[in-house]
Every structure is written in C-alpha cells, then in structure tokens.
Design a protein around this nucleic acid. Structure first.
Length: 286
DNA sequence: AGATCTACCTGGTTGC
DNA sequence: TGCAACCAGGTAGATC
C-alpha cells in the first residue's frame, strides 16, 4: 500500500525516466481512471519538468507554456496520481504493450512510455490547472507534511482532540501521507496505545510520537519503501522496509522488545496491531 | 463534530 | 480439489 515513503520512492525513481520528456500520446484505458474536470488528452504536447510528492499524491509538473508569465487559471500545469492500494507507475521502453491492469498510458517524444497500472482500480489520475486545484477538496484540505513539520506544530495538531490517536494519524486533513503501516509502526516506536485519545497524551508523549514517525518515514524512504503486496518502485524493484516491521502484519507473534503476544484489533475501521505491554494509553486522564 | 458504516475493487488466503 | 467466504485498505459519502 503506497504511503508517503513509497510515493516518495516512486517520485525519485521515476524522475530520470520522465524528466524533460514531451508527451506525444496519452490515453486512458479504463473508464474510471480519470478524475476532475480536465481530460487526459489535455497533457499532450506538454513537457515534464520534474516529479514531486504531496501526502500520498505523486505530482508530475509540466514546464510552463509561457515561462515568462504566471500560468493562467485554465493552463494545464501537471498531472497528479493517487496510487491508493495497488497503483503502480512504471517506465517502459518503446513498443512495450499495456498489461491487463494498465489503466493509463503515456508515450514520450523518444518513444519511451509511462504506464499507470492498478489491479483494483481505486487509484486515479487528475490533470492539474490552477482552477482544477482550487476545485479539488482533497487537495485543499490536505494537512501538513510530517517530514517538514516542527515538533511543536506536530503536538498542536493533536492536543485536545478527542479521537483516537490512530484515527488522527490516518486523517489526511490533520497530517498528510500517513497510512495504516506507518501509523502502527510509529505508535509502537513511541510506546503509545493506538486507542489513546489525543487529549490524554502529554506534549512529551506527542513529541515522542513526532520523533518516531519522522524516524520510520525516513528509514523507510532510505529502504525504498515497504513492499507488502504489489508496491514496486518506478523501475520495478521491491522496497525493503517491510523486513523491519515491529508490529504491522505481525499480529499473534511476539513483541520484539518484551516477547508479549502482539494483539490485533480493529480501530478506525483498520486492522491494528500493537503490543499491550509496551504501548500504554494516554497518561493525562482528566 | 465525531463516530461508525458502506461502497468501491480483485487477487490471495482461509475454511469447509 | 473446488469453491465460497473473507480480507487487505484510502477516501468519499451517508447516517446517527
């Protein structure tokens, strides 16, 4: 499941495959792959400037049509991809034929290609313009980036909030890019029970969570992400961070710190694994 | 406002 | 072996 480190890895591995290439063909191969007001065909003729990430969104900005002017309200400025559960972006040589799960294809001026594959069709692409972004609620309400957030600001996001800390971490409007894997892993590393209410966690505990989250995200990026099932880099390589999971996918096994049996429950509608001994509920009981 | 549920999907795993 | 039921989970939308 591509979360922040996986999307970051795709952005980095995709860059040398697409940078400065002009799009000569773009076709949607599945009726539900596009979202938003602009059709995919609007990207034809544009040249890719770089790749980037915002939350779990992969961004592919274009070189401005008129570099000396600010882009107009309707000028196409790039394309965004949300990989959701099983989305993948792969660079391919000329002539490679789309697979059964290929939802979108672009061909560049050197005949190399970019495929968006997505077995479960949850993912999507959205052509961007200033107006398209203004009308995009998900984009407009996306919370701050965890890797560039100061500890004090991080604490402020959760202080006084009633909801379970795991639900807060998964809420993209509160903080962008965290999914089920890194929510569970960072809570374990910080010694916080996933059901703790935000308001019951002391600033010190929340600062610990900030350090734990930044740590797991950075370590995962260094390992090219976590390959649970289908995730791969843009070059088709698997990540390695799944080999270091402390809790995710390890329900019923023993805690690596204290050998207690890890518990698996449902929280915020998601499978949640934690150590009942190492992870304690908030200490600030009112 | 927040909590909880369902829909969207399909391949892999589990259970009978 | 065969097949049905279940599970994975990010986000939107509905309901209470």
């Amino acid at each position: 499941m591509p979360e922040l480190p996986e999307v970051e890895t795709v952005a980095r591995t995709l860059l040398p495959l697409v940078q400065h290439r002009r799009i000569v063909l773009a076709e949607a191969l599945h009726p539900k792959v596009m979202e938003g007001p602009l059709p995919l065909e609007a990207v034809v003729g544009r040249t890719i400037s770089t790749t980037a990430r915002r939350g779990k969104l992969l961004l592919v900005p274009f070189i401005p049509a008129l570099p000396e002017h600010a882009p107009g309200l309707h000028e196409v400025t790039g394309i965004a991809f949300h990989l959701k559960m099983t989305g993948r972006l792969f660079g391919y040589a000329a002539g490679v034929v789309p697979g059964v799960h290929t939802r979108l294809r672009m061909v560049f001026d050197d005949n190399s290609q970019l495929f968006f594959d997505d077995m479960r069709t949850f993912g999507y692409a959205r052509v961007l313009s200033q107006q398209s972004l203004e009308q995009w609620n998900f984009w407009q309400t996306l919370g701050p980036e965890p890797l560039t957030l100061a500890a004090k600001e991080f604490v402020q996001l959760f202080a006084g909030k009633q909801r379970a800390i795991k639900a807060l971490l998964l809420d993209q409007q509160i903080i962008a890019g965290v999914g089920n894997i890194y929510a569970d892993e960072s809570l374990f590393r910080a010694g916080i029970h996933p059901a703790s209410s935000g308001k019951d966690l002391s600033p010190q505990k929340l600062e610990r969570l900030h350090g734990a989250l930044v740590g797991v995200l950075q370590e995962s990026i260094a390992a090219c992400g976590s390959s649970i099932n289908t995730y791969r880099t843009a070059r088709g390589d698997a990540g390695a961070f799944q080999n270091t999971f402390a809790v995710y996918g390890r329900g019923g096994q023993n805690c690596s710190l204290c050998t207690t049996r890890l518990e698996k429950t449902q929280l915020a509608g998601r499978g949640t694994v934690f150590c009942p001994k190492c992870q304690k509920l908030g200490d600030k009981h009112a």
